[in-house]
């Protein structure tokens, strides 16, 4: 890298985004962290102050009550478990659907690849909310799917599809599929076709060659795609709210309800901190992958 004697220009270039993200990304988390140790009170803002002043010096008062509350009420624990389950199942479905799609695109003729990729990405550019909403129309009791099935005579009574776990899976897989396909495609596209020919030449049947050659090589893509689906899915709010069961909330909805409905900011903050604790390992993992990808020259 060129050596530049006066570093002030660089300091400004790097400093501005760092400063921005410190103020609007990092410090907010510290505030959430701090408020999770406050107690709720009827005031504006509705929590005990961050610092109290004792004899001219600030003193920190930490209350564990919000966290204690989360572990005593089974609603929270079951929401956490349910969110993890939904995210895991959806991620797996995304992988099972997305892998063959990515594979087919990577093996397609170069000219049609860009068109296929565009077709995959295009829905992503249209409103996420509207795409989830579209599924309401499809899944309702008198929705398109039930109407078609009734008309075909496959069923005689409409199936209950909306407000089920199934609807949530559909919604998440549908919304996040491109995030699975793109990293997988990026990985698969780099594979050397000669490797499979060599494997075939050495007597491996296609399935075996796939399992022994292609799959191990695409692990990084699988991991990146899975993390890109799993992490946001855990905190998903819109999809379960529109398509999911009213009796079993996901953790994102719990957080939002605590905040907006109950106005219990400390508990909402504690929920957020625990979600982060849950996700910190996958997030770090993702960051390492991302860094390696970006810095690999």
């Amino acid at each position: 890298m060129p050596r530049i004697p006066q570093l002030s220009g660089r300091r400004v270039v790097a400093g501005i985004p760092i400063l921005w993200l410190l103020v609007l990304f990092l410090i907010p988390f510290l505030i959430v962290f701090r408020i999770s140790f406050s107690e709720v009170r009827l005031a504006i803002p509705p929590y005990t102050p961050l610092f109290t002043w004792h004899h001219g010096s600030p003193s920190l008062q930490l209350h564990w009550s919000s966290y204690a509350f989360l572990f005593t009420d089974s609603l929270y624990v079951s929401s956490y478990v349910y969110s993890l389950k939904v995210a895991a199942v959806s991620t797996l479905c995304c992988l099972l659907i997305g892998y063959p799609m990515a594979y087919a695109i990577a093996r397609a003729a170069p000219a049609s690849r860009s068109v296929l990729l565009m077709l995959i990405v295009l829905p992503f550019w249209t409103s996420f909310l509207l795409r989830v909403y579209a599924w309401i129309g499809l899944l309702k009791n008198n929705g398109v799917i039930n109407n078609v099935l009734l008309w075909l005579g496959v069923i005689h009574h409409p199936l209950v599809l909306l407000q089920t776990d199934f609807a949530v899976y559909i919604g998440i897989v549908y919304s996040y599929l491109p995030f699975m396909i793109l990293p997988l495609y990026a990985n698969l596209e780099k594979h050397d076709g000669a490797l499979l020919e060599a494997a075939a030449d050495l007597g491996a049947r296609p399935m075996r060659a796939f399992l022994r050659i292609t799959l191990p090589q695409s692990l990084a893509g699988i991991l990146a795609g899975s993390l890109l689906v799993f992490i946001p899915a855990v905190g998903e709010y819109v999809i379960p709210t529109l398509l999911g069961r009213p009796d079993q909330l996901m953790i994102g909805r719990v957080l939002s309800d605590e905040f907006f409905e109950n106005r219990d900011w400390p508990v909402a903050s504690a929920v957020a901190i625990l979600v982060l604790l849950l996700l910190v390992i996958p997030i770090m993992w993702f960051q390492r992958l991302e860094r390696r990808e970006l810095e690999a020259k």
């Binding site: 985004p17 609007l24 957080l255 903050s269």
Partner: peptide, 21 residues
């Protein structure tokens, strides 16, 4: 770290933290 984290951060958490800020 701060540029890759928001991409995967659950939106409810980002939203909550920004409001509290």
């Amino acid at each position: 770290g701060m540029t890759t984290a928001p991409i995967v951060m659950p939106e409810v958490i980002t939203g909550l933290s920004l409001l509290l800020l």
